[in-house]
């Protein structure tokens, strides 16, 4: 069991968005988080990634097992595709550059400046970074944004490959990703707080 979340409550801007969130992620499994905009998908992912402190609850995840990919791809426009990937490879201590390039068909763009790439190509470069990380749990925030159909199916194939290799993924998305049966969809609606609950820090003033 790679990651388990129990009774987690996530807040944003002083208000509790989600409460009692609980799920487990086994190796080879993917969780698709669905729910209307602003329900707290990004806040949940940021809490799992450790960027944000949970309001309350428990997250059990091994050290250095998670890699996070946000709306913004963290790509340096003034560096080339290869240089961008080499940098992240060095940060994560990996060097499977060619595999990443080939998987996301960025081989012929290798020396192109990232700034010159299309939105879809930049997105693929951002996702290629995940392969470079070698981390087992992928946290993807709306990965299919600005991807055409062919790219979405390529993304599905890559994620399925990652799952088959024993990895796991938690993906916040509206698109349907075909991960040949490995995916479980969780609708965050059932964790959304109906009554207007305030984060602990604000409640002190009531």
């Amino acid at each position: 069991m790679l990651l388990s979340v129990s009774d987690l409550s996530v807040s944003r801007g002083g208000r509790v968005l989600l409460e009692g969130v609980a799920f487990d992620v086994q190796a080879g499994q993917a969780i698709l988080l669905s729910g209307k905009n602003g329900i707290g998908k990004t806040s949940l992912l940021r809490t799992l990634a450790g960027l944000q402190q949970a309001n309350s609850g428990q997250i059990d995840v091994p050290q250095n097992a998670v890699v996070y990919s946000a709306h913004l791809d963290g790509i340096k426009q003034a560096l080339s595709v290869v240089e961008n990937l080499q940098f992240w490879g060095a940060v994560f201590g990996r060097s499977n550059l060619d595999a990443a390039l080939e998987t996301f068909e960025l081989g012929d763009l290798r020396d192109e400046l990232a700034g010159a790439l299309s939105a879809g190509q930049k997105r693929r470069l951002g996702l290629a970074r995940l392969l470079m990380s070698g981390r087992s749990i992928w946290l993807l925030d709306e990965p299919t944004v600005s991807l055409d159909l062919a790219s979405v199916s390529r993304l599905s194939r890559v994620v399925s490959g990652h799952l088959a290799a024993g990895g796991a993924a938690i993906i916040a998305t509206h698109a349907t990703l075909d991960l040949n049966g490995q995916e479980i969809t969780i609708d965050l609606g059932k964790f959304a707080t109906t009554k207007s609950d305030l984060a602990a820090s604000e409640k002190a003033f009531l």
Partner: peptide
């Protein structure tokens, strides 16, 4: 300052009702 923070907390709670 406490009164302002209390007003802010009340308005936060108020809006979501």
């Amino acid at each position: 300052e406490i009164q302002l923070r209390r007003a802010r907390a009340l308005s936060l709670r108020g809006h979501t009702k």
